[in-house]
Amino acid sequence: MFDIRATFSKVDRRLMAVILIAVLFLCLWVASTAFSKYIVFIITLIGVYIVASASLNLTNGYTGLFSLGHAGFMAVGAYTSALLTFPVKGREIFVIPKLPMFLGGPEAAWPFLPALVMGGVFAAILAAVVGLPVLRLRGHYLSVASLGLMVLVTALAMNLRNLTRGSIGINSIPTYTNIWWAYGCAVVTVYVVWRVVNSSFGRAMKAIREDEIAARVQGINPLKYKLLAFTIGAFFAGIAGGLYAHISGAIRPYAFSFNLTFQIVIMVVLGGQGTISGPIVGTVLVTVLRYVLKPLEEALGVYGLVELIYALLLIITMLRKPEGIMGRKSGGPRGGRWVGSLGGKKS
């Protein structure tokens, strides 16, 4: 298998990628003209979520940090970009603060792209600052600390009312995000993740994931790479948040809380952590499932049906393919604690 891969020259693979992207955008174009607004909205949403899941994969999948804080970074990106793009005329009515001089002054609203990038930058800065102490933690300790970060961000969003309007949230955000923005960002995110993973940088990350002590012995500074992975992941989470704000047109603190964080984690793990295609597949599946089953639920009047089916499929998939749908089976038994059978059954 590896030999075949090796014989593919780099150019061929790049060409393949370009063709793939061209086909993707062609399909998107067809979809955007042929399908109803609702379906196009769902397709766009999938693109937004791919930005989030692909970037979480960088920290959780490739570097082995089990972060539960992604929704917090998305919130930072969402609020930042929404505050920047909010039309000047509406600011008074909707009680949105005017921009200070260093951000363009009271008579300015930002175009979408720079606002989006700014959201990513803010999220990345937060990740870098918080990551320095927090990334020294491992395993579940890191999970709880990152979850705590997310809670802190929502608490701030609730309480900095002058900036965020508290629990009411911000409405009437211009809906700039369309299918092209979403998939443009998705392609860039996946490309960056792919480039990072296949660089010397990515090899260091994977070495840390497999065995941090061994990596350190080889002269890799784990904290440096963890911090970089965390920061890049947060940057794209911020972008995803910005896209989300500008597709839904309204954001509230609790939209960026436990549900969202766990949902993105589920997408990544279900699809297969540590693979490029995994998070994409996971995102498509989870989102499509939700929206395809919704009408069925409404028709039957059985509210909760979607979630029940979703949960069942999740359980069955994870029991059948613990490494995720696109995940590769690792050679040895992970952890090595449960080799062989448990009591009662045949070895």
Partner: peptide
């Protein structure tokens, strides 16, 4: 004549 594997190895 036993074979023992670790996963696939």
């Amino acid at each position: 004549g036993i074979d023992v594997h670790y996963g696939v190895i």
